[in-house]
Nucleic acid binder design. Structure first.
Lengths: 293, 293
DNA sequence: GCGGCCGATCAGCCTTGTTTATCGGGCCCT
DNA sequence: AGGGCCCGATAAACAAGGCTGATCGGCCGC
């Protein structure tokens, strides 16, 4: 059975007239007669009764008409869906990001992408960078925003944001009087940090950069950044974190001080499998590239 | 888009190998290559990546594969359904019958037909003969069992049963002693009948036949046959009805007596529209013909 | 580096679809 | 009842498209 013949039949069944149906199909009448005959032979069924006043459908013809219309519609829709998948306006995208000071910009680009691509099923999760990369390699993710500069086999990544780290300390701390601080200023001070496992990439980069001579004196280890800030506010110690997050979280009573020179910086990269053919990913990547740094 | 190409693509997508797919399709490999290329051009989409190790599907190819398989299955099923409609094993049949002594045989043939045709939606109603015929002509019914010998325009009918009428009377009635009765025996006796409107064809045939000289003396008019029989049992009068029904309904205390000669007979006909193309009807008609008279 | 496997390409054939011209049969209108 | 007309079927010629066999080019594995 061929869709062309079904199409011919549907048009004929609607017009109940070979001549007019042929005209609508832009073919000559004998061709239509012949194709309908072929269809009847294929199905071994008489589809219509040829009367002198046009034609009437047999019960089998009615059944075919009822079935053929949705079939043709389904075929059309399939074609369009395939085309949509090919140009990335239809499909699925699984994104993850590791929390960072760039959260706002990340969720923002995802929001804009979703708004423009209602036929794309976008699923978003968060997790540590290493977890994201592993999932990416295993095919469990399509794209991820991760910390640092990525050099993993099979993964292509580009830096999309760069965050500066800053010191946060209680407003009444002696160092709060200074405008800018140096790494040496922090030496020996009690420090509040988060558990290394809660964000290993950032943790190690920062600790190695700010306390190059050895690990800091840990006054407290708080389970998340909100509580780190609260702990600083209570005077437990000072802390260091990325500027974006510091600005977002700092309550009154806590002040932010920049590093005087060579502020610690860390990158946020957009990563995906190299040569991933998913057109949705390509579209999303272009959104990420266009997003403000 | 043509189903043949879709079929080719599905087979190819499953084998991921042009040569083997072509073999399964019983065509040569270049033809398959060409048809897939045509499909890609039609959709303006690249469906698969040709690697040296067979081929891999692009996302669009996967989308097409997922959509094409149900589409092909639907096309196949449509073909079979049409064929089934054509030979009457699928479709709809609306039957009605007017109650008569042949009820059992009618419901029996319907039951057997239903059992053998689970894909036919058989709807059954009952109604008076005239109502059945009207509905038949209007297209609201496909077949009907009606009383009498039918000569209606556009309707074809054949007698499928012939019922004899008999007298029923209380067991202690003087005439109950006799084995057979004549029409003269009934003359002047109080009679129990049903309202004329509840069964006009039978009513008029019987009254005209049994009381040719004039209407009988109506002792009671009961709303249905069950109550006619009950009324006879109470001694209200005698009655006349078809033998089948009499046998089915008569309780102890009521006896059935045949007419001595020329017992009144009336036919039950099977009627349907002349030249109704519905193949289900043709099948049903053959069941009716094969049913025991 | 060479053989082998795989898909693309090419040229020719043959099936299939389409066209123009014509025929046959009802219907309607005189 | 006959003639014109409308409709679909048929015939023959043509065009298009699918299929085949032979061949080419590229990549992999030995």
């Amino acid at each position: 059975m061929e869709l062309r013949r079904l199409k011919y039949f549907v048009v004929l069944a609607r017009h109940r007239h070979f001549g007019r149906a042929a005209a609508e199909l832009s073919i000559a009448q004998p061709g239509l007669s012949q194709q309908i005959k072929v269809l009847e032979q294929e199905l071994k069924v008489s589809l219509l009764d040829r009367g002198p006043q046009g034609v009437t459908l047999t019960p089998a013809g009615r059944a075919l008409l009822e079935g053929a219309e949705p079939l043709l519609a389904a075929a059309d829709e399939l074609g369009e869906r395939v085309r949509a998948v090919a140009d990335g306006t239809h499909g699925r995208l699984r994104v993850a990001y590791s929390r960072s000071g760039a959260d706002d910009r990340i969720t923002d680009v995802i929001r804009r992408f979703r708004k423009d691509h209602e036929d794309v099923q976008v699923s978003v999760t968060t997790g540590m960078s290493s977890w994201c990369l592993r999932l990416l390699q295993d095919g469990g993710l399509d794209a991820a925003f991760v910390r640092g500069i990525i050099r993993e086999p099979g993964i292509t990544a580009a830096v999309v944001a760069e965050e500066e780290a800053a010191v946060i300390l209680p407003a009444d701390h002696p160092l709060a009087a200074r405008d800018r601080l140096t790494r040496r200023d922090l030496r020996g001070l009690p420090v509040v940090l988060w558990p290394r496992e809660a964000g290993p990439t950032l943790y190690e980069e920062l600790v190695a950069d700010v306390w190059p001579d050895g690990p800091p004196q840990l006054a407290a280890e708080e389970p998340d950044f909100e509580q780190v800030v609260a702990s600083v506010a209570e005077g437990t110690g000072v802390s260091v974190m990325d500027l974006g997050r510091a600005r977002k979280l700092c309550p009154p009573g806590v002040v932010i001080r920049h590093f005087a020179e060579h502020p610690p910086r860390y990158a946020v990269s957009f990563a995906h499998r190299t040569n991933d053919p998913n057109p949705v990913l390509a579209r999303f990547a272009s959104y990420v590239r266009q997003a403000p740094r």
